[in-house]
Simulated assay, not measured.
Amino acid sequence: MTVIENDFLKATINPIGAQLSSLINKATGTELMWQADEKFWPWHAPNLFPVIGSLINNQIIVNGKPYTIETRHGFVRVSDMLPIETTSSQAKFSLPYNQHTLEMYPFKFEYQVIYDLIDNALRVTYKVINLDAGSIYFSVGGHPAFNVPFHAGEKYEDYYLDFEVEEPLVEHLLNTEGFFNGETSPVKLDGKKLFLTRNLFDHDALIFKNLKSRQVTIRSTQHDEHITVDFPHFNYLGIWAKTGADFVCVEPWLGCADSAGEPKELKHKEAIQKLDHGHVFETAFFVSI
């Protein structure tokens, strides 16, 4: 485990998937991250690459050839990542392509996750370096799960998600296999507030496309403590929790699941990112208290 901290926050990162496994508010001692209770969901905050969501037949298609990626959301979250730079307040992890990744994803790349503590915020940066002879195609995103309620004795239903701006929320629906079915549904709000309930995610994640809001804050009606997720450059957002579990995920994505029907070439997949030969892709989201 790698630990970084400053006066406000202490973060612990697992090298398996470079997964943030703990984030502690040092002023209160509060653990902000879900602690991976296997009864519900055995993860904390997976990093997603080179795909997001479910794939038809668990495959991507590149130049007409299928490649199997068995793990939903890609292979990074189960990969050993190498810590390459660490200071007291920054940790950087790398996954270079190898024979195993080439069998699933036929591109040469280096994928990095960088954690920086900046005052009361944790910045999570994703960097992709194209080491291939041509363009590469991928999706990238985060899946952090935050403890809700924050403290023992509180109610889950006292919490809500406060969106940056007041806007109509329309979710894009998934079928039972996790693929978009082409249908949408309005999400009921109280102004900018989406109140959490135990049944909110009975039909899977709420997935939003092209939100005006690029900031979501987890708040309680009972006190002023809060967690804010800023995702200025992510066009898709997933909100999810396992029914009955004391957490909520706020998931910034550049990419999404397949749509039901025939699989498409990876380069034609919805929201896919293209990176030309010799270029570097970089984006970040922020978690602050």
Rank of each mutant, 00 (worst) to 15 (best):
L200T: 05
L266G: 05
F49A: 01
H172V: 03
G255F: 09
Y97I: 11
S88Q: 15
A133Q: 15
N147Q: 12
Y67M: 09
A152F: 00
V165L: 05
T283M: 03
D132W: 12
G153W: 07
Y67T: 07
K274W: 00
F75M: 11
K274G: 01
V216M: 11
G142D: 03
M104F: 00
G261F: 01
E265H: 07
A36T: 10
L32Q: 04
E265G: 03
K242G: 09
G255K: 13
N6V: 08
K209H: 12
G134R: 03
K26A: 01
H151M: 12
A36P: 12
E225V: 06
Y236T: 12
E154I: 09
M104Q: 15
D7K: 15
A271V: 01
T243H: 02
H203W: 02
M1H: 11
N199Y: 06
F150V: 00
P232L: 09
E251A: 09
S54V: 13
K267A: 09
T217D: 10
F247S: 02
N47V: 10
E270A: 14
D7R: 14
S21M: 12
V76A: 15
E225G: 04
Y105L: 13
V78I: 15
E270W: 06
I118K: 15
P50V: 07
D246W: 00
